[in-house]
Design a protein around this nucleic acid. Structure first.
Length: 542
RNA sequence: GGGCCCGUAGCUCAAUCGGAUAGAGCAUCAGCCUUCUAAGCUGAGGGUUAGUGGUUCGAGUCCACUCGGGCUCGCCA
């Protein structure tokens, strides 16, 4: 429907000399009596052309050459809106096109031929993924799905660091627990990793090696084993959510390939860095940021900032047209430095979209749980999946705007999990599958022959909702937030459930029953396509 | 104190790039199953969109300030 309007307005654009920077928008009015679509173009142009918006709207309508079989009524309303009413027969017939497009319905080719990179999760292998990582993982994967739906070839990437202080502490944590298991009296420092998983790793080493590791260094087998076990665990957890990264980018490779050194030289040559107090500083204050930051410590070890910049440079060098970084709000302060440096190095930072998701607050027994990886008083993502299942976890994280704080009441999620909106969507899908099974038994089949029989209010509303699906996907991809898609799918499911209670298939006259079956098939298709983008299953039975 | 995010119904959240009368779910109350899944549908109540001012034909949305909450401001990542 929208495309028809755009085509219709190409001639208007010429006639009224509308420049390209004035976009024509078609919105779906909240109130039904305002039509199927509405445009505010007359009001936008009124000032420029120094005309009364309503008069201008009438002029525009007069110049429109629309097919009455498509648009049955056009009117001027309110301060100057132009409202379009589509012909019900035209709406009904469009069910056929949805079915023909099948799994492709909802996808666009806007970004065909372009490459995008989504970096997400990127948790260092120091412990199991927490609920907070879960939000990042789900949002990132869904963003990637949405970008793919608009034509991008998307790579999902996980950036990690298996060197440095954090990992040394990890190795030593395992070593100390190992010695403890051997009966040695050890003092376990407070700043070491306290979790049970450290003890489990130590036990594993003890079983395999006995006491032969007694005199090994923390950074040797202890660190390596911890990293290996934890990473396997992380991948397994992500796998349970259907998440698979194309690449795991190891920070260490930047050193091995000399990227760090060459970047350091570049900064030096350009006079962007200087030495002070035995450390190397980056002149970020010259690049419009607040203050200079250390990039190489006086110990000779780079800070995370330097590899971060080098890493992001590779994203450009690898030829991505669109680069998405997703991280938690605790990293807000780091990205302006990286972007400023990249920009100075000549990279087009417009290609980078930094998404910050706010924290997840876990409410357990009515109280917020303070989470700390080191102290191990957190709820792991695995536990959450055990509790409520992958579908609920994915939907729950997708259904809230990325930029808002998310309260996750565990007790409520467990207790009322059946009332979760995800079941509402899945139930609609399962219901449709049931209808198809029952009607097939009765020898009925779907047909696009008599779609114009779909004329009741419930049918018309349902079809219009279906037709809006590509817009919903596009909107969600534009803002990189699945919340848009969730809201749409809930509306679609609601429209279907209403249709279901009013419009019977079994017992209806055969041509109508076949047309309704076609509609129901289209709803099933859109629900399945939408849920697939969210990474949520579409069950045949519930 | 500076920067970023948030504040919408009792609770959790929507509101398609600034559009017309701010919507759902949960909870509460009142109805609907001899027929395709009641995990559903129908109806009722519930709001000064934290506050004040501004921008304009039009603001929950944009700007300024105030209040409240979160994150952050390391030679940690």
């Amino acid at each position: 429907m929208k495309n028809y309007l755009f085509d219709l307005f190409t001639s208007v654009k010429e006639k009224f000399d509308i420049s390209d920077d004035t976009e024509i928008n078609f919105d779906i009015p909240k109130i039904e009596s305002h039509g199927d679509y509405s445009t505010n173009i007359a009001m936008l142009l009124a000032k420029k052309l120094k005309k009364n918006p309503r008069d201008l709207a009438h002029e525009i309508i007069y110049s429109l050459e629309h097919d009455l079989a498509v648009i049955s009524k056009v009117e001027v309303a309110g301060p100057g809106f132009i409202n379009f009413f589509f012909n019900p027969d035209y709406i009904s017939r469009s069910v056929k096109e949805i079915l023909e497009k099948g799994a492709k319905f909802g996808k666009t080719e806007t970004n065909l031929g372009k490459k995008a990179l989504v970096e997400f999760v990127s948790a260092n292998p120091t412990g199991p993924l927490t609920v907070g990582h879960g939000r990042n993982a789900v949002s990132g994967d869904t963003m990637a799905n949405l970008l793919e739906a608009t034509g991008y070839k998307v790579d999902r990437e996980y950036y990690f660091n298996n060197a440095g202080r954090q990992m040394r502490v990890l190795g030593n944590s395992v070593r100390l627990r190992y010695l403890e298991l051997l009966g040695e009296q050890v003092e376990f420092p407070e700043d070491h990793y306290q979790g049970q998983y450290i003890i489990d790793i130590a036990k594993g080493l003890l079983e395999k090696n006995g006491d032969t590791l007694k005199n090994e260094d923390a950074e040797g087998i202890f660190k390596d084993e911890a990293e290996k076990v934890i990473f396997e665990d992380i991948k397994k957890t992500l796998g349970r959510l259907g998440i698979k990264h194309e690449t795991f980018f190891n920070e260490n490779s930047l050193y091995e390939e000399g990227k760090i050194e060459s970047l350091l030289n570049t900064f030096k040559e350009r006079g962007l860095s200087y030495e002070k107090d035995g450390a190397v500083w980056l002149k970020l204050s010259d690049l419009g940021n607040e203050k200079d930051k250390v990039i190489v410590k006086n110990s000779g070890e780079p800070t995370y900032r330097l590899p971060d910049i080098a890493y992001h440079a590779t994203k450009f060098d690898r030829g991505y047209d669109f680069i998405v970084d997703l991280f938690g709000s605790d990293h807000t302060a780091t990205y302006p430095d990286v972007l400023a440096a990249l920009s100075e190095l000549g990279y087009d930072t417009e290609k980078v979209k930094v998404m910050i998701h706010q924290f997840v607050t876990i409410i357990k027994e009515g109280k917020a749980v303070k989470m700390s990886t080191r102290k191990a008083n957190y709820i792991t993502l695995d536990e959450l999946i055990d509790w409520v299942g992958s579908d609920v976890v994915r939907y729950f994280f997708n259904m809230r705007a990325v930029s808002t704080h998310l309260n996750f009441d565990l007790d409520l999620a467990v207790k009322h999990s059946e009332e979760n909106p995800v079941f509402y969507l899945q139930y609609a899908h399962a219901r449709i599958c049931s209808i198809i099974r029952m009607t097939t038994e009765q020898g009925l089949s779907a047909s696009s022959e008599n779609l114009t029989l779909l004329s009741t209010e419930e049918e018309q509303k349902l079809i219009k909702k279906l037709l809006f699906f590509p817009d919903a996907v596009e909107n969600a991809a534009r803002v990189l937030d699945a919340v848009v898609l969730c809201a749409y799918l809930e509306e679609l499911a609601a429209a279907f459930h209403k249709f279901y209670t009013v419009c019977r298939i079994l017992g209806s006259e055969e041509r109508l029953a076949s047309a309704r079956l076609a509609l129901v098939n289209a709803v099933k298709l859109v629900l399945a396509n939408g849920l697939a983008l969210l990474g949520v299953s579409a069950p045949e039975r519930m």
